[in-house]
Amino acid sequence: MARNFVPAFKTCTEKDIELLQIFIDKSKKLAVITGAGISTESGLPDYRSKDVGLYSRNGYRPMNYSEFLGNHSSRQRYWARSFLGWNYIHNCQPNISHLTLTDWQRFGKLNTIITQNVDRLHHKAGSESVIELHGNLYNVKCIDCNHRISRILFQTILTEMNSDLLNDDKSLRAKLLQENNENNNNRTIRPDGDIDIIDDFVYSFRYPSCQRCYGLLKPDIVFFGDNVDQYLVEKIYKKLNNECDSLLVLGSSLKVFSIFRFILQQIQLKKPLAIVNIGPTRADTFLQNDQNNNDIILKIDSKISDVITKIQI
C-alpha cells in the first residue's frame, strides 16, 4: 500500500460544502488547477506541507536547471536516483480526487485541467484536456535538438548501460535493497521522481547522450530555475480568459509564480475563484483584503477528497 503523505487537516464543514456546491453550480465552463496536494493520497509527497512535505522533513531542494546543465556529477546523481525511483512513480495510481475530476469532465462540467504535477495521474484516471504546465516524467528530451523518447524506453537503456551494477555487484545490490527496505521503499520518494540512494551507486552510474546529436538528455519537465514554455502560458491565459468562467484550485500553495500568474489574472478579471488546500496559499492575502468579496473568492482548508467527492454534478 502506498504511503499516505497527506498532512494534518481540518474536517470540512457542511457550510464549506454548501458554498463550493453553489460555486460549482454557477459554473458552466469550469477550469481546475491541481498541485502536488492532489497526489499525496496516491503516495507522492508534496514539497511544502508541514511535517510531511519534503522541505519540512529534510530541507531537500529539487534539482536546479543550471546545476543539471553545468555539472556531469549532478546529472549522474539525478539519473541514478531517478532510475531507482521510476518504478515507484510509474506504478502510482490515481486516487479518488483524480477520478472525481474525470467524472466531472465526462458530465460536461469541467472544461480544462491545468496541472503543476509531472506524475501523469490525471491521464491515468482517464482525464482529457489536461495541460501539463511543468511537463511530465514520461518523456525524456534532448536539450540541443529537442528529440524525445519515452521514459519507459529510456529506463531500458539505463538498465542495459548499468547491468554490471545491477547484476554483477551483488553486495551493492543487496545494500541498495536493504536501504530501500529500511525506508519502506517509498519513504524518500519525491514528486519529481527521484529517491535517496547510497553514493557508491551514484558515482558508478552511467547515462547516455542523445542518439541523434549527442546532446544532453533531461526529463521533459521544468526544473527549478528553468522557464515554463511560453506557448503553454499563453494557451492557459486564453483558456481562462475566453473558454472558462470560473477557476477551482486543488492542492496547491501557489507559491511559484509560474502558476500564481493565472490566479492574478482571475482576480483581475473578477472571475469566480475557489481554493481547496491544506494550509496557507499565496492567494490568502486576497481573501484577507476582500472580506466583502466572498462570491468571487472561496477558500476551504481541508483534504481535497473529503470536499470534492461531496459535490453533486
Rank of each mutant, 00 (worst) to 15 (best):
A2K: 15
F5S: 02
V6R: 15
F9D: 09
F9S: 13
K10I: 07
K10A: 05
K10L: 11
T11S: 10
I17N: 02
E18G: 11
E18V: 10
F23T: 13
K26L: 06
K29L: 07
K29Q: 10
V32A: 08
I33C: 09
A36S: 00
G43K: 09
P45W: 00
R48E: 11
S49Y: 03
K50H: 13
K50T: 12
R57M: 03
R57N: 06
R57D: 04
R61A: 05
S66N: 12
F68Q: 13
H72I: 06
S73F: 13
S73E: 09
Q76F: 02
R81D: 01
R81G: 03
L84V: 12
W86Y: 08
N87W: 08
Y88C: 13
I89G: 03
I89E: 02
N91A: 12
N91S: 14
P94I: 04
N95E: 04
L99Y: 04
L99D: 02
D103P: 10
Q105P: 10
R106P: 00
K109N: 08
T112V: 15
T112L: 14
I113A: 03
I113T: 02
I114H: 01
R120M: 15
R120D: 11
K124A: 01
S129L: 09
G135H: 05
G135F: 05
G135C: 06
G135D: 04
Y138S: 11
K141R: 15
C142Q: 05
I143K: 14
D144A: 10
C145D: 07
C145G: 01
N146G: 13
N146E: 11
I149N: 13
L153K: 14
F154Y: 10
M161Q: 07
S163I: 12
L166D: 00
S171C: 07
N181D: 02
E182W: 12
N185C: 09
R187T: 03
T188K: 06
R190T: 09
G193H: 00
D194C: 11
I198N: 12
D199W: 11
C210A: 06
Q211V: 15
R212Q: 15
Y214Q: 13
G215F: 05
G215N: 12
D220E: 11
V222L: 02
L232H: 00
V233E: 15
E234Y: 10
I236L: 02
N242I: 04
C244N: 03
L247F: 01
L254C: 06
V256F: 04
I259H: 01
F262C: 09
I263E: 00
L264R: 15
L264Q: 12
Q265P: 06
Q265H: 07
Q268L: 13
K271I: 02
P272T: 00
P272I: 02
P272Y: 01
V276C: 14
V276M: 07
N277V: 01
I278A: 00
G279E: 05
G279K: 13
T281N: 03
T285D: 10
F286D: 03
Q291F: 15
N293P: 11
D295S: 11
I296G: 06
I297N: 12
L298F: 10
K299C: 02
I300N: 03
D301G: 11
S302D: 07
K303N: 14
I304R: 07
K310W: 09
I311M: 01
I311R: 00
I311G: 00
I313Y: 06
